[in-house]
Design a protein around this nucleic acid. Structure first.
Lengths: 241, 241
DNA sequence: ACAATAGTGTCTTTTAGACAGTATTTG
DNA sequence: CAAATACTGTCTAAAAGACACTATTGT
């Protein structure tokens, strides 16, 4: 079976967070060809002694500038799918195991060791057709589109939204996560009912958030509950469109 | 970047069908080490000019003994996930892009060119803990478990069950698909209501099925509709367990 | 006639959608 | 006080679960 050609195996990551109320994704600017100057999803090669998920955790920690142990505290990472078109990288045959990661608001990333820059992009500015929208390298536009669909649908039937907020959090904050990811806000009253009656979604504290300059009552603070799935699912408004 | 080790990339397939009312999966007996004599999911290497999905279609056609064009007629195939543990194959570093395929009842497969045998196994006889349950090679038990979870959950929110029946079909037949995959039958009356009121799930004909030795009225025949998703989902009985 | 299965209808419960209305806070 | 936001409650519609009931066929 040595007549089979060798492949390089990489991981690519779509790392999502909420910044300024907008769903955002981390991109790095490529410093070298192919696609020099274009923006790309962060990623790297899978090492000889790690599986793809371990490589993805390692890259996540490197790119966000936090230690891997810390990343394990707040982060959620899962495999998305594998991209293997023969010509997806002109240099060699590369198969990429793409992953999706979710994190609460993180600091602006530090530049990578290869002197390229990395920054958060509002997803809407990347997937849009605007003239100033960056054209992504390789097949990363397709990967990002798949990742976006994944995060949107996982909000429906899991408690994944909890990964986008720091503890403790308020229900209006959690509501804004749904609004940012779906692009449309569910009715706040019905949202509260759904979250509070789903066992294990959130657990209340008896504290209230600090006052907000905008006025209004101080909302109650909650912590993440142990539940992981929503039964039945939370429906996104206009979800059939 | 040539300091990175070469990988072999394969596809493995969990090919499901319904045989004698039981959800079944195609397994091949390995003829050589490692795991000689053990049963495994069919699979093979990804060729230099194809992507993983093309390799999976090729393997599907080879293993089921039907031409690839025919397979495209009736089959549904989708990527499951990628398995990349460093020690999953003792011979070399192999990354496997697993796929799931669904087909109506197929003939017993012919033996592969390497003189190994292939046959359908009732899923219950493979995942069970019985003494005569085969111990699968490599990490294929894990792949099969993931594939099983995939097919079970896809029945909930898609019209995938249509891939397990030949056209034309009756609603009791379609109902038996759900019963076989879920291990428990939804109420037939409520099932009919759900299927018939979901736009595009099935389209009626004005024909009736041939008579059955068991007696009873001859059920109406239907064809597959254009719809692909169920909104809202069909809930499996005891689905939270 | 009887058994078996196909198909219809009905009642109840659960849940979501669409609000209205009250309470709390800042400026 | 007004404005803004947090929170509660209510009415309605959609849908599922749990049946009972009728109809059609083979033996």
């Amino acid at each position: 079976m040595s007549e089979h050609p060798p492949f390089a195996v990489t991981v690519d990551l779509a790392i999502f967070t909420i910044r300024n109320g907008a769903l955002s994704v981390l991109l790095v600017e490529r410093g070298e060809d192919p696609y020099a100057g274009r923006w790309a999803l962060p990623g790297g090669f899978v090492g000889p002694d790690e599986d793809a998920e371990a490589a993805a955790w390692r890259e996540l920690a490197e790119e966000t500038g936090v230690s891997r142990a810390e990343a394990g505290e707040w982060g959620h990472l899962e495999q998305l799918r594998t991209y293997s078109a023969p010509d997806r990288d002109p240099r060699m045959r590369v198969v990429s195991v793409a992953h999706v990661a979710f994190a609460p608001d993180l600091p602006e990333p530090t530049a990578g060791s290869d002197a390229t820059q990395a920054r958060w992009w509002a997803v809407q500015d990347v997937v849009g057709e605007d003239a100033d929208a960056p054209r992504l390298a390789f097949d990363h536009a397709e990967i990002l589109a798949d990742a976006l669909e994944r995060v949107r649908s996982k909000l429906e039937y899991t408690t994944l939204a909890l990964q986008f907020v720091d503890e403790p959090f308020t229900l209006p904050e959690l509501h804004r996560v749904y609004a940012a990811v779906w692009g449309e806000a569910p009715d706040l009253g019905n949202f509260r009912r759904k979250v509070l009656k789903t066992p294990g979604f959130v657990s209340p504290t008896d504290e209230k958030a600090d006052a907000d300059a905008a006025g209004g009552p101080r909302p109650l603070l909650y912590r993440r509950g142990p539940g992981r799935t929503l039964q039945p699912a939370m429906l996104r408004p206009g979800g059939d469109a």
